[in-house]
C-alpha cells in the first residue's frame, strides 16, 4: 500500500499532513456476512478521534483489523508508516508493540499484581521470565513500571492483586500497561464502559492527556456522547460497514450524534 498524503483538518484550517493511520477499502466478512464493507479514512498524528456507531456496526472489529488481531478480508491499512497487511509474523509483533490497546474488559491477568501486569507491557521488546512477573524483573524495568503506575495514580497499589481492585483502578492499570509499551498510537475500545460516570470521565481525561501532553494519536470507541464530544478532535461514525459520518468535534452537537444513532437504529 502506498503512503497517501491526504488533506486532514487541523485547527488552523485544512493542510496536507502525512496521516498516522490510513485505511483504504477495508472489508471484513464473517461466514459470508459483511461486517465492514469498504471503510476509508485517514487520521492526522497527535489527534484524538472518536469512533461511534450502533452496537454490531463493526467498530470493535475495525479496531482489531487495524492491528490484524482479526485478519481483514480485503483492503489496506497503513499505520505508523507500515503497510500492516504486508508484515511478516515477526515484523507484526514488533509493529504491535508500537500500538497500545485499551480494552473494554481491561484484560489483565487477575491473579497477578498490578506491577506484574504493567511489566507485561514490556514483552514486545524483552522476552523470557524477567517480564512475566515483577519478582523476576530487572530493576530498571520495575522502575519504569512503577513510573507508569504513578502516572495513573496507582503507585501505592503496585503489589495489590488486580482482581482486588475496583473497575476504575483496574482500567488504570491496563492504561499503565499500555504506557509500558511506549506506544505511538492508542486504540481504545470503550474504555469508559462499565465504569461509573466519574471514573469513566477520569479514564477519558487520562487518555486525552496522553494525546495533549505526549503527542500520541488516539482512536477511541465510546457510546457516551458527552465523552465523544468532550474528549475528541474529530468524530467518525460507522454505519452499514462504512464511514457514514466524519466531522470535526467542534462542529458536532449531541443532537446531531443522537440523530445519527436514531437513523442507524431505524435502518
Amino acid at each position: 500500500m502506498n503512503a497517501p498524503v491526504l488533506p486532514v483538518r487541523a485547527e488552523a484550517g485544512s493542510t496536507l499532513v502525512e496521516p498516522v493511520l490510513a485505511v483504504q477499502g477495508l472489508t471484513k466478512a464473517f461466514a459470508g456476512t459483511g461486517i465492514l464493507r469498504g471503510v476509508d479514512f485517514a487520521l492526522a498524528p497527535g489527534q484524538s478521534t472518536a469512533l461511534i456507531g450502533a452496537n454490531g456496526s463493526g467498530k470493535s472489529t475495525l479496531l482489531r483489523c487495524l492491528v490484524r488481531l482479526v485478519e481483514p478480508t480485503s483492503g489496506g491499512v497503513l499505520m505508523l508508516g507500515q503497510d500492516v497487511g504486508a508484515l511478516s509474523p515477526r515484523a507484526l509483533r514488533r509493529f504491535r508493540a508500537r500500538v497500545g490497546i485499551v480494552w473494554q474488559k481491561h484484560n489483565l491477568v487477575p491473579r497477578l499484581s498490578a506491577l506484574s501486569n504493567v511489566i507485561h507491557g514490556a514483552q514486545a521488546r524483552m522476552s523470557g521470565p524477567r517480564v512475566w512477573t515483577q519478582a523476576l524483573a530487572p530493576a530498571q524495568v520495575r522502575a519504569e513500571a512503577m513510573a507508569c503506575l504513578a502516572r495513573v495514580g496507582l503507585a501505592d497499589r503496585a503489589l495489590a492483586r488486580v482482581d482486588s481492585l475496583s473497575g476504575g483502578q483496574s482500567q488504570r492499570v491496563a492504561i499503565a500497561r499500555m504506557l509500558m509499551q511506549r506506544p505511538e498510537f492508542i486504540l481504545a475500545d470503550e474504555p469508559d464502559a462499565s465504569l461509573d460516570p466519574q471514573t469513566g470521565q477520569e479514564v477519558m481525561e487520562l487518555l486525552l492527556g496522553l494525546v495533549r501532553q505526549d503527542g500520541l494519536s488516539l482512536l477511541v470507541i465510546s457510546h457516551r456522547l458527552e465523552h465523544t464530544l468532550a474528549f475528541s478532535d474529530r468524530i467518525l461514525g460507522l454505519a452499514q460497514g462504512r464511514i457514514a459520518l466524519d466531522m470535526p468535534t467542534p462542529a458536532a452537537s449531541a443532537g446531531e450524534l443522537r440523530r445519527f444513532f436514531d437513523h442507524e437504529a431505524a435502518a
Binding site: L69, R94, W103, V109, P110, L112, Q123, V131, Q181
Partner: peptide, 22 residues
C-alpha cells in the same frame, strides 16, 4: 479467559510470553 492472552498478543508478546505471563 482468552482476554488477557489476546491483550498480550496485541502487545506483541511471544507465545512463550503469553503462556508464562497469562
Amino acid at each position: 479467559d482468552p482476554g488477557p492472552q489476546d491483550a498480550l498478543r496485541a502487545i506483541g508478546a511471544s507465545r512463550l510470553g503469553i503462556i508464562g505471563s497469562a
